[in-house]
Write a protein that binds this DNA or RNA. Structure first.
Lengths: 271, 271
DNA sequence: CGGTAAGTTGAAAAATCTCAATCACGGTGG
DNA sequence: CCACCGTGATTGAGATTTTTCAACTTACCG
């Protein structure tokens, strides 16, 4: 990534790995850029609406949401969307790009708690205290939709569907974190990496990308932090998977050669 | 624990370790049992209301909440409040007793994701899919208030304070899990146990109990599962802390002799 | 091109786990 | 009342996994 130009919202994918046949014909249909601009890039016209906050809303509800989500913010790679301690005012929907969230201990240690891609929401950590409890950093040039939280609460008092969708998204985040705890607490290094890659490919596939070819947006160190491993251990696991013919790894480009094998690796309780 | 009798809501504490002076005079004032019964054990009369869902609600709001929270459920030790896969209908507020939540992988592995004490809420994992994503099990004879979720959503559309409180509780859970991820991902065994104990004593202190003497409601294996360690490692860490004069450990009874020392142990990045 | 950040690989050290033996405690039944 | 049983806890010793430290390679950017 070298410039800040942000073309089609759905991005952060392998530009040189065209979507596979099995990923074609997904619900995320192509929308002409002109249309998007005509709609002032509103939720109702966003091709991410089936993955994002608008899921399950009817036309009227969507229209109200459009009026609420008026601001976007563009971030170059490396910039923080918010930092721990910042006052909380809004949630953010990733429109394009890729983020990481990380918490830091007083002693400087820090831990990546998640990676967010297009259509995913950021910022829930701030509701509890009114101040963000972690950092959110763009891992590539990115754009988010700003969702002012007070207004969102007000609107979700009017519309049960929006309210429920919000609860679902937060609940999903809690469940996701349960999964990470399981991973961190009871898997060994290779299982963790396999589970991580499967999760990534699944989410990419849900966005219409190939489920087998991906470009990692994060460093080995960031993967390691997320998985509770050192970057060396992550690197070794990648090499091992490549030797075993499960993956083809070329720096950040990864191709899954044997998905079933990867799946097996992710829960090999019989070590 | 041998019977199912559940006296005062605030329990699950060391009956033989009276509250220390530093814990006295806490907001959780004593309420006579007759009063409780007169109020039909409603939220408005519950001595946990400053820790539980009712935080920040005014009289009218509290009254409405009372009409919603009509059912209680009593569980003997070992019984599940809900299991993974169960249909989700309600949230639960721990009224008395102590719970653990755990997720299980397909391969049988499982991981304790949290311990819940009086005033804490359970069940948010079920909102995402309409089915619970983890088990919640009573670690001692316990009682919960059943909060029907649809009705709670309806009421929180009426009252912004309730709505916001709900969002805060869910956000707090997300932030808590971030903390657990930090612990699991970047702390070593003794740091994990120290952090765990500090968290427990803090929460007990917030309930008016001694911050120095506690009785663990869970086994070493359960602590280990939560902390991503084996029960032997947990046991060794306890012994080490005892040898170092930081704790006095007698099976499940723990006394913190040197809180500052424990705090130091919890973030000794300088290994 | 050269410098820098990222990634790989090796070997030794350290932490944790595993397996096994033993101990403590709280019921239970004789 | 006490011996016994089963669960939970402790401790030790060796095996295993992961980390640490260090050297080296690769890719990218100006």
């Amino acid at each position: 990534m070298h410039s800040s130009t942000l073309p089609d919202p759905v991005r952060s994918n392998p530009p040189d790995h065209p979507a596979h046949p099995d990923a074609a014909g997904q619900p995320v249909a192509a929308i002409h850029l002109q249309d998007l601009h005509a709609l002032r890039q509103a939720c109702s016209g966003c091709n991410l609406r089936e993955l994002c906050l608008p899921v399950g809303l009817n036309g009227e509800e969507l229209m109200h949401l459009d009026t609420l989500v008026q601001t976007r913010r563009t971030l170059p790679r490396g910039e923080a969307l918010y930092r721990s301690g910042d006052a909380f005012h809004a949630l953010y929907a990733v429109r394009a790009g890729f983020f990481k969230t990380c918490v830091g201990a007083e002693d400087g240690r820090d831990q990546v708690t998640g990676f967010q891609m297009a259509g995913e929401l950021l910022g829930f950590d701030g509701i509890a205290t009114g101040h963000h409890a972690c950092d959110a950093v763009a891992l590539e040039d990115s754009q988010v939709c700003v969702i002012p939280f007070e207004q969102l609460e007000a609107l979700s008092r009017q519309f049960a569907a929006l309210q429920h969708q919000m609860h679902k998204v937060m609940s999903r985040e809690i469940v996701r974190e349960h999964g990470v705890m399981l991973l961190l607490g009871s898997m060994r290094a290779e299982e963790r990496l396999a589970a991580f890659l499967l999760n990534l490919t699944q989410r990419l596939a849900a966005r219409g990308f190939s489920g087998t070819a991906l470009v990692l947006r994060m460093t080995r160190a960031e993967i390691g932090s997320y998985l509770g491993l050192t970057l060396e251990t992550v690197s070794r696991a990648f090499s091992k998977f490549q030797d075993d013919g499960v993956l083809e790894v070329k720096q950040r480009e990864v191709r899954v050669l044997d998905e079933a094998g990867l799946r097996r690796l992710a829960n090999s309780s019989a070590c």
